[in-house]
């Protein structure tokens, strides 16, 4: 059952622009920054942040995509082995400042896996985390540096970030008790 629309398309746009400004301010410019989106919706958001930086400063910040499947901590618990998606970071990340992007932070386990996956690609000088939604209920001591929207949820709720590329429209929806069914 749908509980609430957390963000409309317009609000998503505005929030992503705001995060772009925050990042540029906090990092004192975008030199040596590489955006890395976590598959799949993190990649869509990373592309929008890249566009946000372009619109704001006219700079082209390099962007890559990261798949965390091989680094998950629940592989031995799952009924179906999850399929591996592409990891492609077009620049050497050693010494770079990484802006890791995901759609939602929940338990923190995805980010833990993403950090491990990232370290196998090189040794960045700094990693920061940007998420569109922080829904609390953390199980690991991991916290985002840039947050679009902070929302209190129950563990059984589902926060769905919908993006045009995969879902046909842009919005963020909070579902009660395990989603649409």
């Amino acid at each position: 059952m749908i509980k609430k629309i957390l963000m409309t398309a317009e609000e998503m746009d505005r929030t992503i622009s705001r995060i772009a400004y925050e990042v540029a301010e906090h990092l004192k410019g975008l030199g040596d920054v590489v955006i890395v989106g976590v598959q799949r919706r993190g990649v869509s958001l990373a592309e929008r942040l890249q566009k946000g930086f372009r619109d704001m400063d006219g700079v082209e910040v390099p962007m890559g995509e990261l798949d965390i499947t091989l680094y998950r901590d629940d592989l031995t618990l799952l009924q179906d082995q999850p399929l591996v998606r592409s990891t492609s970071v077009p620049v050497n990340i050693t010494g770079k400042r990484i802006l890791l992007v995901d759609d939602v932070i929940f338990t923190g386990r995805t980010v833990r896996a993403a950090l491990d996956a990232l370290m196998d690609l090189g040794r960045p000088s700094l990693v920061q985390l940007a998420v569109l939604v922080d829904r609390n209920n953390r199980e690991l001591p991991i916290h985002p540096d840039y947050v679009g929207l902070k929302v209190s949820t129950d563990k059984s709720d589902v926060v769905e970030v919908r993006v045009k590329e995969w879902d046909g429209d842009d919005q963020v929806v909070l579902w009660e008790d395990g989603g649409e069914g």
Binding site: R85, S88, D116
Partner: peptide, 26 residues
Amino acid sequence: ELLLEQTSNMDSILDRSIKKAPALRG
């Protein structure tokens, strides 16, 4: 087709400086 696609995602690991992932630990 599924295997070809999965293979191409494994293939990119061979180009990394650290050619290892923890998926089959244990």
